[in-house]
Write a protein that binds this DNA or RNA. Structure first.
Length: 204
DNA sequence: GTCATGATACAG
DNA sequence: TGTATCATGACC
């Protein structure tokens, strides 16, 4: 598989969010290749997007990486217990990012089950199998993405997004984003994208 | 459906 | 010091 280049991410987060669908998130964990196909994303457009951490160019220790160059991981802790995985879009100085909301497991499922449930894949029921990666906090657990990965360059090394050899056909649905009730008019922006009919789409 | 969990940011 | 948040699981 071909790694996506810096140029891929050097566009608006809306474009990057749409084009990340169908691509493969790869993380080498303990020498094991853990891979998920990206099936749901959300774009956060920065200074003029009330739902974004970087709204009004708010710059903190947490979101610092959003202000840097594209193609880097922005991983933050939410509600004390979970992590959320984003990839920075646009050139340095434009703090945009794409939230990865759900994946379809492709490889390393045994490792995923171990990381998320501390048990073997064969001991997982149907709901647990879907639950491996059908939400932003869940996929971070299954792919061992933590705040340690914050600021990682996604264009090289052992944590990256790659293109499949053959693109499968799919339809993209765009709708409003999840759990941003605080964001006034931004609530209504159709900046959530997912692959129509995929069973790993997060609920809500 | 409700509620506890608790890192991070920010207002006071 | 209190309140809110790009979520989830355990409960009812």
């Amino acid at each position: 598989m071909r790694k996506l280049t810096r140029e891929f991410y050097n566009r608006t987060s809306l474009d990057v969010a749409k084009d990340l669908l169908g691509k493969y998130l790869v993380h080498i964990v303990d020498g094991v290749e853990v891979i998920g196909r990206i099936v749901e994303t959300e774009a956060y457009m920065g200074p003029f997007d009330k739902a974004a951490h970087s709204y009004n160019n708010r710059r903190t220790k947490r979101n610092e990486v959003m202000f840097g160059p594209p193609g880097f991981a922005y991983v933050f802790a939410i509600y004390g217990m979970y992590s959320c995985m984003n990839i920075v879009a646009e050139e340095a100085g434009k703090p945009q990012a794409v939230l990865i909301r759900s994946l379809e497991p492709v490889a390393g499922l045994e490792k995923m089950a171990e990381l998320r449930y501390e048990k073997s894949l064969s001991d997982c029921n149907k709901k647990e199998l879907t639950g491996l990666t059908n939400g932003p906090g869940k996929l971070c657990q299954s792919m061992h993405i933590t705040r340690i990965n914050n600021g990682t360059d996604m264009c090289g090394g052992s944590f990256y997004v790659a293109e499949g050899l053959e693109e499968q056909e799919f339809q993209v649905v765009s709708t409003t984003r999840v759990n941003i009730d605080y964001a006034d008019e931004a609530i209504h922006y159709p900046w959530r994208f997912f692959i129509k009919g995929n069973k790993y789409i997060s609920q809500k």
